[in-house]
């Protein structure tokens, strides 16, 4: 493993993309940054720009309006990249998804319909620990890809 690859795995930077929904999962992700959970002690840092990110964290059902933007964010991330979907809405559509005509008109589809997802974190919303566990799995995936 070269220096570049080692530093990538040791300190993965995260791009957080909130894509609609009830905001519950977003709050839990922000809770990971609070002193109690403090993910920065693991070298994980939230960045505002997708160009500096290694891991993309998507939360919320993806509304139709944000579908294009999510695709663009995914394409802007440099290549060894891992996508983590957080929460029931991001995984399958959750309460917004139904059989036949019962699909919400604003639902752009679960995340894996738009971009390939590597790690799924179920929960409604998941605990901050569950999200940290999901990101730990994502780092292992990143190790394989680098």
């Amino acid at each position: 493993m070269g220096l570049k690859a080692w530093s990538r795995v040791k300190s993965p930077w995260i791009m957080f993309a909130p894509c609609g929904g009830c905001n519950g999962c977003h709050i839990e992700i922000v809770a990971c940054l609070t002193p109690r959970y403090d993910v920065e002690r693991l070298g994980i840092k939230i960045t505002g720009s997708p160009r500096q990110a290694d891991i993309l964290v998507v939360a919320g059902h993806v509304s139709k309006q944000i579908t294009k933007a999510l695709k663009r964010i995914y394409e802007q991330i440099p290549d060894p990249k891992v996508v983590v979907a957080v929460g029931s809405c991001a995984l399958t559509g959750g309460v917004f998804y139904g059989e036949g005509d019962y699909v919400s008109y604003g639902l752009g589809g679960p995340v894996n319909k738009i971009i390939p997802v590597d790690v799924y974190v179920p929960g409604c919303p998941p605990k901050p620990e569950a999200i940290i566990h999901g990101i730990a799995l994502a780092i292992q995936k990143l190790k394989e890809k680098v």
Partner: peptide
């Protein structure tokens, strides 16, 4: 139990 994260959705 809360550690439910998986690589494959069909396992959840």
């Amino acid at each position: 139990k809360f550690e439910l994260a998986v690589y494959d959705l069909s396992q959840a």
